[in-house]
Simulated assay, not measured.
Amino acid sequence: MKMLVKIICPIEPFNSMVKDGSAGEVLGRIIEETKPESIHFTEVEGCRGAIMVVEVGGAGDIPAIAEPWFLNFEAICEFRIAMTPDDLMKADLENLGKKWS
């Protein structure tokens, strides 16, 4: 299943890592290990951040995705299940509408 991961990196320790030259190397290792389908870096709530799409087999995969961000950047990670259009079509919305209307 696909998960959207919103990552918020506090100003510190990220600033210190940028200054000592380690931020890029650590980011590269995390991305290489996590193998996201896509990742986009942006501002989130006034901090450095990213939005990442990852494929997970189940909830047990979440720590392997979150811990590198937690441990290296003291980041906040939020996970959301994501559906493709095909996933949504499999939900049988018509019958759900009839059942719950």
Rank of each mutant, 00 (worst) to 15 (best):
M1I: 13
K2M: 07
L4E: 06
L4T: 14
V5D: 07
K6W: 04
I7E: 00
I8E: 15
C9T: 06
P10I: 11
I11H: 15
I11V: 09
E12C: 07
P13H: 03
F14Y: 07
S16A: 15
S16L: 12
M17F: 10
K19P: 03
K19V: 15
D20M: 07
S22A: 02
A23W: 01
G24Q: 08
G24M: 07
G28L: 03
I31Q: 05
E33F: 08
E33A: 14
P36V: 00
S38T: 12
S38G: 08
I39E: 11
H40P: 02
H40R: 11
F41V: 06
T42G: 10
T42M: 14
E43H: 07
E43I: 01
E45A: 04
E45H: 05
E45T: 00
G46F: 00
C47K: 12
R48M: 05
I51L: 15
M52I: 04
V53A: 08
V56E: 06
V56H: 03
G57Y: 06
A59Q: 08
G60S: 13
G60F: 09
D61Q: 08
D61K: 02
I62C: 09
I62N: 11
I62D: 08
I62F: 09
P63D: 12
P63T: 05
I65R: 04
A66G: 06
E67R: 13
P68V: 00
P68W: 03
P68A: 03
P68C: 02
F70V: 02
L71Q: 11
L71G: 10
N72S: 14
F73S: 07
E74Q: 15
A75T: 01
C77H: 02
E78R: 05
F79Y: 14
F79K: 01
A82F: 11
A82I: 14
A82K: 03
T84Q: 00
T84W: 00
P85A: 11
P85N: 10
D86F: 07
L88T: 15
M89G: 09
K90R: 10
K90H: 10
D92C: 01
L93V: 15
L93A: 12
N95S: 14
N95R: 12
N95E: 06
N95D: 04
N95Q: 10
L96E: 04
G97V: 11
K98L: 09
K98I: 14
K98E: 09
K99Y: 03
S101C: 08
